[in-house]
């Protein structure tokens, strides 16, 4: 049976829309830019480390980071810290919201990407490959430098320290949980 023209138009435009939205979604990773990313160097005996970074969402659409993956560790998870009644509680979370035109910092004492069971110690100067996975399934590949603790501490006190590509980003991260 021959389909009426109007129906064909609807089907065609739906297809177009699907394609278009597909293209839009594929751009999710492109809408998110990452700066100040680093993995913290591990101390001997430390099986885990963390990746911190600032995520900028330059689009008009809200996204969320739903996972991260990498070969460097047995498991890569999104975690956060809850500072409650004097207790530090680290918890796994299933997403980190990235509001439209917003900036979210993964920082010490807050949200972070947890690298559990590192296959080898994270040494200063090394790089670790990580992929960020967004709510539409798109991925963003990152090569994240490993930074020593002193470098981070240095950058906390001297505003121009470290190898940050975006020196305008706030640096005083570690004091957020002081009461």
């Amino acid at each position: 049976m021959k389909k009426p023209l109007s129906q064909s138009i609807i089907i065609a435009s739906s297809l177009m829309l699907a394609l278009l939205s597909g293209t839009l979604f594929a751009d999710t990773a492109a809408d998110i830019t990452v700066s100040n990313a680093y993995v913290r160097a591990t101390a001997p005996g430390q099986a885990n480390s963390v990746a911190f970074m600032t995520l900028h969402n330059s689009s008009m659409q809200a996204y969320s980071l739903i996972d991260a993956e990498g070969q460097a560790a047995k498991a890569v998870e999104l975690h956060t810290h809850i500072h409650e009644n004097g207790m530090m509680k680290m918890r796994r979370i299933n997403k980190i919201d990235l509001p439209a035109h917003g900036e979210v910092m993964l920082k010490p004492g807050g949200h972070h990407i947890m690298l559990i069971g590192l296959k080898q110690a994270a040494k200063k100067g090394d790089s670790i490959h990580l992929s960020l996975i967004f709510n539409d399934g798109s991925k963003k590949m990152l090569t994240v430098p490993v930074k020593g603790m002193t470098m981070q501490m240095g950058s906390m006190e001297h505003k121009n320290g470290g190898h940050d590509m975006h020196p305008s980003a706030p640096k005083k991260m570690d004091h957020n949980h002081m009461h």
Binding site: A43, N48, V50, M90, P108, G109, D174
Partner: peptide, 17 residues
């Protein structure tokens, strides 16, 4: 505890500093 990947190293590094 050493499994602690953020909070403990932060404080120990400050102590070391």
């Amino acid at each position: 505890y050493t499994f602690c990947s953020d909070i403990c190293p932060t404080n120990l590094a400050l102590m070391a500093q």
